[in-house]
Amino acid sequence: MGKTGRATAAYRAYKDVSRPGSPGLMARIKAFPRMIGGSMRGEYRDLGKGKLAMMGLGVLYIVSPFDIVPDFLPLIGVTDDFGVFLWLMSSLLGESGRYLDWEHKKVRGEVV
């Protein structure tokens, strides 16, 4: 995904979080552990193991001291980390919104 694609995805995630009636930012962040646990246990099937693994690799890439573009290069070095961060946050926020909808339906007995 290019720079424009990541920025567009981040903007869509922001619009989704700020939409009236949509779960807010803190509700989505608090749902991360439940969503990941539900996915690992096989209860929440909308977040596949492949996407979950990609998100984990994204976290590892951000915290890893090794980068494709070294961080000591001014501005350019942090661009790749920021791009991965944008992708990771937009993916997590979008998926956690879908998880909260699924969880709400499950509580109401609409989801098996």
Rank of each mutant, 00 (worst) to 15 (best):
G50Y: 06
L75M: 05
G48E: 13
R19L: 05
L75R: 07
I76H: 00
R98W: 05
R34Q: 07
S22C: 14
F32H: 02
D46C: 03
S96N: 06
W87Y: 10
L73N: 03
Y61M: 03
L92C: 08
I36S: 07
G77C: 13
M89F: 01
G58R: 07
D46R: 14
V59R: 07
R34I: 00
V17M: 13
F85R: 01
F66T: 11
G94L: 01
L60D: 04
K30V: 12
I62H: 03
M1F: 04
K105W: 04
D67L: 03
I29G: 04
E110T: 01
G109D: 02
K51D: 14
G56E: 02
K3F: 06
W102T: 04
R45Q: 13
Y44K: 06
Y14R: 10
E95T: 12
S39K: 09
T4R: 11
R45L: 02
A27T: 07
G37I: 13
M40D: 06
R45M: 04
F66E: 11
A13V: 12
L75K: 04
G58V: 05
L92S: 06
V107R: 15
L47M: 03
P65L: 06
L52F: 01
A7W: 05
V111L: 09
V69D: 00
D16I: 00
F66G: 11
V63N: 07
Y44H: 12
K106Q: 10
E43G: 02
E43L: 08
K15A: 13
L100V: 15
D71N: 10
F85P: 00
D67A: 05
F32S: 01
G48N: 03
A31M: 02
L47H: 09
V111F: 11
R19H: 11
L25V: 06
S90F: 08
T4N: 06
F66A: 09
P33F: 15
M26G: 10
V17T: 11
V107E: 07
E103C: 00
R41C: 01
